[in-house]
Design a protein around this nucleic acid. Structure first.
Length: 114
RNA sequence: UAAAGCAGCCGGAUAAUCGCGCUCUUAGGAGUGAGGAAAGUCCGUGCAUCCAAGGACAGACCGCCGGAGAAACUCCGGGCAGCGCAAGCUGGCGGACAGGACCACAGAAAAUAUACUGCUAACCGCCUUAUUAAGGCAGGAGCGAUGGUGCAACGGUGAGUUAAGAGCUUCACCGGCGGUAUCGAAAGAUACCGACCAGGCAACCCCCGGUCGGAUGCAAGAUGAAUGAGACGUUAUAAAGGUGUCCGCCUUGUCUCAAAAAAUCGCUAGAGCUUUGGAGCAAUCCAAAGACCAGACAGAUGAUUAUCAGGGAAUUUUUCCCGAACAGAACACGGCUUAUGAGCUGCUUUAUUCU
RNA sequence: UGGGGCGUCGCCAAGUGGUAAGGCAGCUGGUUUUGGUCCAGCCAUCCCGGAGGUUCGAAUCCUUCCGCCCCAG
């Protein structure tokens, strides 16, 4: 789990990030990037697993936790990225019943862009 | 030994590294952190706000008997009915002479016993032969047996009686109804006696008995909080509004929208939990002691590695594989229903074999 | 999280206890030199989202499960 300062929380912040329109895709994960960061604040990250992926809360939470854990380990090893104000990771049905290694490699490929 | 039935348990453990929520803090850290169903939202309750003087009606729910419980489409015990060889399981189980509706097709007829189809020459009547009689006719009269249907036909089977017949104050057995006696706290059970009223359907309306103030749900609601705009009405036997309807009663303005995004509170010490003792067949209740046991809000409770319990396969001493199912708190609690891997424990029944 | 609604042929749908209407699409045949139009016929029959119950009889009444949609910040 990330510390509170690195989490994207507000509904308005989510909408603003989606509106900028910049996105990357890899292995069932889509990454949306917000505005360029001029103030040198640490980037805030949000994670989305919609109800369309699976009906049961357990399976959705599992995907969300694995994605967060992978991003947390990246931040711990390489430091907090500062290029964008915010990023959002959106999962798709491809990630159902996948293990940590699969999601970890997918996240790492996306995170190279930051 | 095999096959069943019932009741219950478990819902992985330990260690290391990296992390998250909440509380406390001497700021180093310490403590604590998902379930038996947290689920479905099918019932019920607390709690909160609004409405409600009061009355009537409507409405909702329940339905063998007794007990438990805050209440419940709840639980326990008993009865009855059905299923099973049995242990046992299942049951929305009051009333169809208060009334209404419905019972397709078929059938004479679907609730009305006599319309139809029929049976009967004992009686009245008529005809013929003819003479205390015999034969014929179904008009009167008697009868309710027969009638290929249908889920269901106004008790069933057998015998007697008769002109023909029939529950026929004739008989036997069975079924239903009512009464009396005994047992029982009651539902009910058993025995005896009597009469012959009578289809099904109330998970259709309804009747009887019982219970319930109503509506909205923590996105309830409180704090901030004071304001502005529009619509209707125009000073009163009117009009508008007030959370089922009407009467009544109340207000003089009422309603809608914007401000309105967030924050804090509500929020977890409880019809609660653990242990022990007592009462009771049991549900459950009583008493004592102990502990404090999630409280998030883009929403914590996680990730990786190792070992073990456990399971499977090959094989005979080890090797390999898996190491879990259903599933994630969101105000709280009591039930019900549904989902659920591998196992374990106890009791009971039936069958077979041995002693 | 709470509240409300729906489910009938491949699609749109009617049907409030007694044989499951109709249209579009599809298939077969006819008409035409051929195609279209038009005409006739076929197309739910263990099956009305699944399961159980009440009833002589259930798409319909009752219970329960499943799926889909809508509303409230």
């Amino acid at each position: 789990m990330l510390p509170k300062e690195l989490r994207l929380k507000k509904r308005s912040a989510f909408n603003a990030t989606y509106k900028t329109g910049k996105s990357f895709h890899n292995d069932g994960i889509t990454m949306f990037c917000g505005r360029k960061n001029e103030m040198r604040h640490p980037t805030k990250a949000g994670f989305v697993v919609s109800k369309k992926i699976h009906k049961r809360a357990v399976k959705r939470n599992r995907i969300k936790r694995l994605m967060r854990e992978s991003y947390r380990l990246f931040v711990k090893n390489n430091g907090t990225p500062e290029k964008y104000m915010s990023v959002i990771f959106v999962a798709s049905t491809k990630l159902l019943n996948k293990d940590f290694k699969f999601i970890d490699t997918a996240i790492l490929k996306l995170v190279e862009k930051l």
